[in-house]
């Protein structure tokens, strides 16, 4: 049963509550870096990585430092600073010890500091009342959902770029309209996951 809940949280994050397409978090990288397939997937993987690290750090801070001391109101300030510091830290560690990974993900890391999806998932895990394992699964799901949206959309976008369209909708407008159609497709997932696993 417990495992079922974890799978439910994971799949909900990927499909139903897709952060980019249903909850509008992390739109800037979604529109900015989705032009090419390999950039989109690199960014997506870097986001999954940072989301997992951020949750692993912010969750204990909230539970064992802020809540016992009655400092819950400092959540926003502490979380954004911790995430910003963490991204820098991860960058330094990767550069020093895993240069191969740094080469593939490093360029995307600074962009993620001000990515609202990372802060959003850290805060949502607390407000949804998840325990630590559930939070990690939720972050993984949200990250995978972000990757899925980026990769799918990079494909859609590469086809749009080759189509002749009226001048005034070229560029950003046509991209947003395409995002709307992709988002519509994701609407179809609502309710499916819950029914499939028998969890509400």
């Amino acid at each position: 049963m417990d495992f079922k809940v974890l799978i439910y949280i994971l799949l909900t994050g990927v499909f139903v509550n897709n952060y980019v397409l249903q909850r509008f978090l992390g739109i800037c990288p979604f529109l900015g870096v989705s032009k090419k397939f390999d950039q989109a997937s690199g960014m997506g993987i870097a986001v999954i990585f940072v989301m997992l690290c951020a949750t692993a750090v912010t969750y204990p801070i909230q539970k064992y430092a802020l809540e016992p001391l009655g400092l819950g109101y400092l959540q926003t300030i502490v979380f954004i600073l911790v995430i910003a510091a963490l991204v820098q830290f991860v960058e330094i560690i990767l550069k020093r010890f895993i240069p191969a990974l740094y080469k593939s993900l490093g360029v995307y890391l600074p962009l993620i500091t001000t990515n609202c999806a990372v802060l959003g998932v850290a805060i949502n895990n607390i407000t949804d009342g998840f325990n630590f394992v559930q939070s990690m699964f939720s972050s993984l799901g949200v990250g995978l959902g972000f990757l899925l949206a980026m990769v799918l959309f990079a494909g859609v976008r590469s086809r749009i770029e080759n189509c002749p369209s009226p001048k005034s909708i070229q560029g950003l407008p046509i991209t947003l309209i395409a995002a709307s159609i992709v988002s519509m497709a994701f609407l179809g997932f609502s309710g499916v996951i819950g029914n499939l696993l028998g969890v509400s």
Partner: peptide
Amino acid sequence: QAPGGFLVFGIMIA
């Protein structure tokens, strides 16, 4: 709903 947000924003910018 979510798709409407993208659609209306796209059309406004157009």
